[in-house]
Amino acid sequence: MVPFLLPDSLEAINSERITALIVYFGSYVSYFVVALLNEDVQVIDEDHSLVTNI
């Protein structure tokens, strides 16, 4: 199992595919960190942790 995954340039694909990518890879890693645009965040399920301020 891969402990950590940080993909880049997700804004290049649409929200539905980003969601599918998160669901798929989320089952293989302990931590999956993505930086998303506000409109892409809206389609992500509520059961994921979000960091809104750094």
Rank of each mutant, 00 (worst) to 15 (best):
L6P: 03
D40A: 02
V43H: 12
F32G: 02
E16P: 04
G26V: 03
L5P: 00
Y31I: 15
A12I: 06
S15D: 08
D45R: 13
S15H: 04
E46Q: 08
I22S: 01
L50P: 04
Y24D: 14
D47M: 08
L37A: 11
R17N: 13
I18E: 01
E11T: 12
L6M: 12
R17H: 14
L36S: 01
E46I: 08
E16S: 10
Q42H: 08
V29Y: 01
S30K: 15
V34D: 00
V33D: 04
D45G: 13
E46Y: 09
E11R: 09
H48T: 06
I13A: 05
V2T: 15
D47F: 07
V33E: 07
F32M: 05
P3K: 10
L36E: 02
V33S: 06
L5C: 07
A35Y: 07
V29L: 03
E46P: 03
V23C: 06
A20K: 14
D47W: 08
V23R: 07
F32N: 01
F25A: 06
L21V: 04
Q42R: 05
S15E: 04
A35D: 06
S9A: 13
S49G: 13
G26L: 03
S49V: 15
F32T: 02
R17K: 15
Q42A: 05
E16A: 12
V2D: 09
Y31D: 15
I22Q: 00
F32Y: 05
L50F: 15
A12E: 09
I22H: 00
S30C: 12
V29H: 02
V29W: 00
P7F: 02
F4Y: 14
F32H: 01
T19F: 10
A20H: 09
E16F: 06
D8Y: 09
S27W: 11
F25I: 04
H48K: 10
S9D: 14
V33C: 05
D47I: 04
D47V: 09
D8F: 10
V2L: 08
I13D: 04
I44P: 00
T19K: 14
P3F: 12
V29N: 02
S49R: 12
